[in-house]
Design a protein around this nucleic acid. Structure first.
Length: 502
RNA sequence: GGGCGCGUAGCUCAGUCGGUAGAGCAUCUGACUUUUAAUCAGGUGGUCACAGGUUCGAAUCCCGUCGCGCCCA
């Protein structure tokens, strides 16, 4: 049994304690009247938003005999509680508490109500002479008493840090936060329904990996006590989804789930983030390109009813087909250098240095191209663009390009300068895959902490035969950022990773 | 990891040249009672992020630490 008057460590000031004690006292008074301040349920007949729509045409000053009941949080009170603004999931409605209609018991209990309390109200609908749709309360019940004051009613909650640390307050106070996080849920719902309608099977693969694989990234490490075994939080589901394709669980599988990468935090990076990965047997990267476009276009049409959205001060046009150009061609366009004519790493490094781009002495031909691309091309990719035909050297899981052995069949889609999608014709030659892993292991030994690990278990699976397969990864958080015009990934993740507060 | 900025009442914010800590909202008391950020009168409320330094005197100047934001890597 805890002492309700005990000082909580989070409550520093005397005022905060005082406010809390005053509200605890009101709870006791309410109980003393035989009422339960935390009742088990309340039957809502409608919502504020639904009422606003339903009675849109009710004239000023018009009263009805229509009774309804509604629940919500008290956002403000005027005239000593005579007028209460109630907020629920989809709107606000004014509640009028006057002894003419409100029962005598409840009228006495008005002084026990505070801003922030959740109440249920029964009453009749009218529109006031000033034009406000109003519920003339006949009775109310406290459904949950709030022990803390809400942020300032006019300016709301502004402090960025508090908005992240106490997201529930941000959600109560800021419509924009509610809208963004609801849009996120809708976007994911639409992705699911599109993929399910196109024959994809939704699956779940492990979060705990004995060997972190499927991406170039540093993992979080953890330990299983009973098995006495090191495990890693997954950096990508790729190698397990391919095992499902090998097994023929379905020719089309997808997973929408969290990945974890033990790297920096920025407006575009959160240590845990949500990824869509899908694999389609007998398809190549060109098929996946079309799939990517129609998937995203479907989401936009369903949710926004348009294919053109604002992002910052720009307009992004998602209408398929999207621009498509090879990485080397884009690099040549922006630097004048045609790397396809450059044969070795030394010459590539020299070409990059000549235009003022520093590259490491160990950088191979492909690494140099990637670096030049990042520094000179990415910033220009505003409208949706598939960048194709990446260097093999930086793509250890992709199939060698059918027309050029130095490249792979891969594309990344850039929108608003951000990488949104990454896709390949998947490498399904186990001998070739082993060579690629060997090279990665060598890179790791020479200091590349993001290089892939050798994974014999996966190689063994490949050796049983994986059909030709196209694969796609889409960063859901960044996609949601684009579609909700959000400038920080923290705005599209309900509870972003934060440091301990001092 | 580097640079810049921010941190003052529960919330939103002022705080001049270094001279006793301020406002609005919220809250409490009272008045009023069909309001719309209700209004009127009065009151409560402060670890000025934390720690040190300079100074007769620091929210203010300096150093360090922590947290948040923005830009860069």
């Amino acid at each position: 049994m805890t002492n309700p008057s005990a000082i909580q460590p989070e409550l520093h000031s005397a005022l905060e304690q005082e406010l809390r004690m005053a509200r605890l006292k009101k709870i006791e008074e309410y109980r003393a009247r035989g009422k339960n301040p935390y009742p088990p349920s309340f039957e809502c007949a409608t919502t504020a938003g639904a009422l606003q729509r339903e009675f849109e045409s009710l004239e000023k000053g018009e009263e009805t005999e229509i009774r309804t009941q509604i629940a919500g949080r008290i956002r403000s009170m005027r005239n000593s509680g005579m007028f209460i603004d109630l907020q629920d999931k989809d709107g606000k409605i004014q509640v009028f508490c006057h002894p003419d209609s409100l029962n005598a018991d409840n009228f006495e209990e008005l002084k026990l109500l505070d801003i922030g309390d959740i109440i249920g109200v029964k009453g009749r609908i009218r529109r006031t002479p000033r034009g406000e749709l109003t519920l003339n309360a006949e009775s109310f019940d406290i459904l949950s008493k709030s022990l803390h004051p809400l942020p300032e009613k006019y300016h709301g909650l502004q402090d960025q840090e508090t908005r992240y640390r106490q997201r529930y307050l941000d959600l109560i106070m800021n419509d924009e936060t509610r809208n963004t996080l609801r849009k996120r849920a809708e976007i994911i719902q639409e992705i699911r329904s599109y993929l399910q309608a196109h024959g994809f099977l939704e699956v779940e693969t492990p979060m705990l990996h004995p060997i972190p694989g499927g991406a170039a990234a540093r993992p979080f490490k953890t330990h299983h006590n009973t098995l006495d075994m090191e495990l890693y939080l997954r950096i990508a589901p790729e190698l397990y989804l391919k095992r499902l394709i090998i097994g023929g669980l379905s020719d089309k599988v997808f997973e929408i789930n969290r990945n974890f990468r033990n790297e920096g935090i920025s407006t575009r990076h959160n240590p845990e983030f949500t990824m869509l990965e899908l694999y389609q047997a007998y398809a190549d990267y060109k098929d996946i390109m079309h799939l990517t476009e129609s998937l995203v276009a479907h989401v936009l049409e369903k949710i926004f009813g348009t294919l053109i959205l604002p992002m910052g001060d720009k307009m992004i046009d998602f209408t398929p087909p999207w621009a498509k150009e090879s990485m080397c061609s884009l690099v040549q366009k922006h630097t004048g250098i045609n790397f396809l004519e450059i044969k070795d790493a030394e010459a590539a490094q020299a070409a990059a240095q000549k235009i003022g781009i520093k590259v490491e002495a160990s950088a191979g031909w492909g690494n140099v191209i990637e670096k030049v691309f990042e520094e000179r091309v990415e910033a220009h990719l505003i409208q949706p663009t598939h960048v194709t035909d990446y260097p093999l050297e930086i793509s250890p899981l992709a199939k060698t390009h059918r027309a050029d052995g130095r490249l792979v069949e891969r594309f990344e889609t850039f929108i608003n300068t951000w990488e949104i999608a990454n896709a390949f014709s998947e490498l399904n030659d186990p001998v070739e895959q082993q060579k690629r892993f060997d090279l990665q292991v060598k890179n790791r030994e020479s200091g590349d902490t993001e290089a892939h690990h050798m994974d014999y278990d996966f190689l063994k699976a490949l050796e049983y035969g994986m059909p030709p397969t196209g694969g796609l990864g889409i960063g859901i958080d960044r996609l949601v950022m684009l579609l909700t015009n959000s400038s920080s990934i923290r705005d599209v993740i309900a509870f972003p990773t934060l440091k301990h507060k001092a």
